[in-house]
Amino acid sequence: MSWDLSSDRPIYAQLLEQIELKICSGIYPPGFKMPSVRDLAQEASVNPNTMQRALSALEDTGLLYSHRTSGRFVTDDADLIKNTRTRLAQKHIKEFLKKMSELGFNKGEILEILINLSGGNTK
């Protein structure tokens, strides 16, 4: 997965979000040993200090943790990852609902479109 950075928001915040996404989607699975700051920075073509800042912020949330000698790992806490996933989903759905209401759709109409698009099956 490539790193997609937009130009108008702080870079570290975008890196943080994208690593979160990679953890939620299993690209970085639970217990995974993260690449070094330098390698990650290079992969994303960003400044190592900026990458470090994003990783530290993720350590604060608990999604990543550091082992003094062996490096940085993804948490094994399945609940924490699940909660993060739910939070990200809610965020995206809120943005989606906002756009839909800007287009003039009410909740019933939105639901109808969703059901139609997903093949008419709500299960």
Binding site: S7, D8, P10, I11, R53
Partner: peptide, 15 residues
């Protein structure tokens, strides 16, 4: 810092 500019001004250094 680049991120401070982006955060406070809501735009890239280039803009």
């Amino acid at each position: 810092t680049v991120d401070d500019i982006r955060e406070k001004q809501g735009k890239s250094v280039d803009s």
